[in-house]
């Protein structure tokens, strides 16, 4: 009776000890923000952010007055997507650096604890085993989330001061959705890295494997898909238009196995409201369409499969980490 009173009375609650999960998250967040690797990644991302912003700010006048562009009214979205081809835009940078950030925060999550002998020390405390895994994931995600939201909010604030343009509500939501998407994307690589850290005994092995997977998907995967498709596909000159489209869709679907492709697709759609489809459109579908920006809801509908794909991949990796970790003998 007394116990339940204490648990549910907000007056008493502040005296109750924090749950082990929250204690772990607090420590993990502290560890991350003090660690060198996070500081290095932070500097790297900040530099690309500043570089991308510098390039887009110097071209913003041209972009915002380009009458052929239906997106010209969204100044803040233009800030994120404009480039004069000397530097890639920010979301392209993130599609490269995001994985590295996720891997850096997760590759030694479990195996370092195990090798240092701290894992068994933690497990001897009255805490559930999954709390540790969840805390590792959640703490890193919290740090990443804070990083991305501060970056985009900084961008909006800076843009306001420099351009003086008013911020549309739909623009703000698109940018926030972009930040959420980026967090999910990095979250995927994080959960992959944590899974590998459970699987492999040495931190170096898990880091190298994670980087290997990342390189495979960013560089080799597209080459391999294109090579195979070129070998298999008949000459397009002899094909009907709808079968060309069908083949094209097939190639695109295969390319979308790569998480970076999903991320770039989704980010492009969110940041460029005039993007109507991520696949090829037929002339009939295009007939009567006015090149105008889509409402936010429509853009979200287009990226929904991509977001679901990323979330599913993240969940699958994390579930695998759980499966491996819960059955693991923890003695060294």
């Amino acid at each position: 009776m007394m116990k339940s009173l204490i648990a549910f009375n907000p007056f008493f609650r502040q005296h109750a000890p924090a749950s082990p999960f929250r204690v772990m998250v607090r420590k993990e967040v502290g560890d991350h923000i003090r660690s060198w690797r996070f500081i290095i990644m932070l500097v790297l991302i900040l530099l690309t952010f500043i570089g991308a912003m510098y390039v887009s700010l110097s071209n913003i006048r041209k972009a915002a007055t380009n009458l052929n562009d239906p997106d010209r009214i969204f100044v803040y979205l233009k800030l994120l997507t404009t480039s004069d081809n000397t530097l890639p835009t920010f979301h392209i940078f993130i599609s490269f650096l995001g994985p590295l950030l996720g891997i850096a925060l997760g590759f030694d999550a479990i195996n370092a604890e195990k090798n240092n002998g701290t894992l068994i020390r933690l497990m001897a405390q009255p805490v559930y085993r999954d709390n540790l895994l969840l805390a590792k994931f959640y703490a890193a995600l919290k740090v990443i989330g804070t990083l991305f939201f501060s970056l985009v909010l900084l961008m909006i604030g800076g843009g306001m001061i420099i351009t003086g343009a008013p911020l549309e509500a739909s623009e703000l939501f698109r940018i926030l959705a972009f930040a959420v998407l980026s967090v999910i994307y990095v979250g995927f690589w994080l959960s992959l890295a944590i899974t590998l850290s459970v699987k492999f005994r040495h931190a170096a092995t898990s880091a190298l494997t994670a980087i290997g997977i990342w390189l495979f998907f960013t560089i080799f995967y597209q080459i391999i898909v294109n090579m195979i498709m070129n070998a298999i596909l008949p000459d397009p000159a002899y094909l009907q238009q709808d079968s060309i489209i069908a083949y094209n869709n097939l190639v695109l679907s295969l390319l979308r196995v790569a998480p970076s492709q999903l991320y770039t697709d989704a980010a492009t759609t969110l940041l460029m409201p005039s993007v109507r489809s991520l696949g090829p459109l037929t002339m009939e579908q295009m007939a009567g369409a006015i090149p105008a920006p889509l409402p936010l809801k429509e853009s979200l509908m287009i990226v929904w499969p991509q977001v679901t794909g990323l979330l599913a991949a993240t969940t699958a990796c994390f579930a695998l980490a759980y499966f491996l970790f819960m059955r693991r003998e923890i003695r060294t």
């Binding site: 560890d31 003090r34 240092n116 002998g117 701290t118 068994i120 020390r121 001897a124 405390q125 009255p126 805490v127 559930y128 060294t332």
Partner: peptide
């Protein structure tokens, strides 16, 4: 969990967070 609340365990090669 209930057992671990009552039992203190010192593993054979214990480690600490060195930082």
């Amino acid at each position: 969990i209930a057992v671990k609340r009552k039992v203190g365990y010192m593993p054979d090669n214990v480690g600490f967070y060195d930082n």
